[in-house]
Design a protein around this nucleic acid. Sequence first.
DNA 1: GGCAGATTTTATACTGGGTACAAGTTTATT
DNA 2: AATAAACTTGTACCCAGTATAAAATCTGCC
Lengths: 190, 190
Amino acid sequence: MRLHISHLATNLFMEKGFDNVTVDEIAAAANVSKMTVFNYFARKEDLLFDRNEETLALLRTRFAARTQAPIPALKAFVLDLVEAKHPLVRMTPPIAAFWKVVADSPALREHTRTMAAELERDLARMLAAAVGQPVDPLAKLIATLLVGTWRVAFRESLRSRSWWRETFLDVIDRGFAAATTAARGTAYVR
Amino acid sequence: MRLHISHLATNLFMEKGFDNVTVDEIAAAANVSKMTVFNYFARKEDLLFDRNEETLALLRTRFAARTQAPIPALKAFVLDLVEAKHPLVRMTPPIAAFWKVVADSPALREHTRTMAAELERDLARMLAAAVGQPVDPLAKLIATLLVGTWRVAFRESLRSRSWWRETFLDVIDRGFAAATTAARGTAYVR
DNA sequence: GGCAGATTTTATACTGGGTACAAGTTTATT
DNA sequence: AATAAACTTGTACCCAGTATAAAATCTGCC
């Protein structure tokens, strides 16, 4: 049911743009009342980003299974995503279309920032836990640097559909090198 | 007039919290109609962050007058702010109270993220212009790393009112070292 | 002073996301 | 079948923000 509504809504968003579809419209298309939609999804934005939680879970799982120090492990994780052509880094036309919907809506762009902020907080907690310490400024700094690196690399890979690999990997390389510098001499790097 | 309304609104926000003050209320307090308020301020959030543009202008001015490479110059700029006890880094009780209003409102927290994103874009442009190049992925990455560093340092200085200096400067040190690593071998560092 | 024209302010009415609440409907349990 | 629990819905509401056109205020000019 939740999936049904979310799917329907996503199609409408792709057709007409996020801001040009009202929740009433979505509810009508699903033969359901507006209240029911808000019952399943706290905000309109969640209709599109329903799978965000899965991504976080994937990160947590992979991080928990790591065999290296936190920062190298995270870099290896990102490189694995590229190698495996995971949807998060594989810019097929439908995926590019999805992100175009996001890029075209101010509300959705703001929402991605909120998600990034939550990711930063989560990652800081994970990093701190990995070295057995409370969440301190250094953990927050590293989390911010890494999430920022990811954001830039991701956006660049969206901008140019072909030949993005080189740029993407260069940004990842430089960003992780930067985080490594910030964390030099701590357990985060080795 | 704009200042009058903004001042009045800020006081109301400090008293009751951003989300518990309606624009109608502000308009009434200023003996003015709601439309007039929106005439001066495009969004409710702008009533509080009216001076954001000034800060950006300060950054641009200082950056234009720099004598060092971009990244060292920006670090010197931040250290100067600390030295001069600029309001941006001096956490007096009224300033802390102001930021508590922000911290207590989800809408305002989102707004700060939007401002940070705009700052990132601006800084990327400034960096690219400084080395005579179009805005490329590296400029974006450095801008993101530096703004992220600033955000973390700033938030930490808010968290603990006394003895914040050491932590603040440590985060700045590590963050700028990280950005320097990301930019190694380019004109951004020297 | 007084008039014409531009600018500002205002009232009114609307859109749309989101909440509160209470009543109705379905589904599961015994 | 009866009752409780969970889900769904209608209705009414709040508030930010927009559109539009009328009214008030200010401006330069004679």
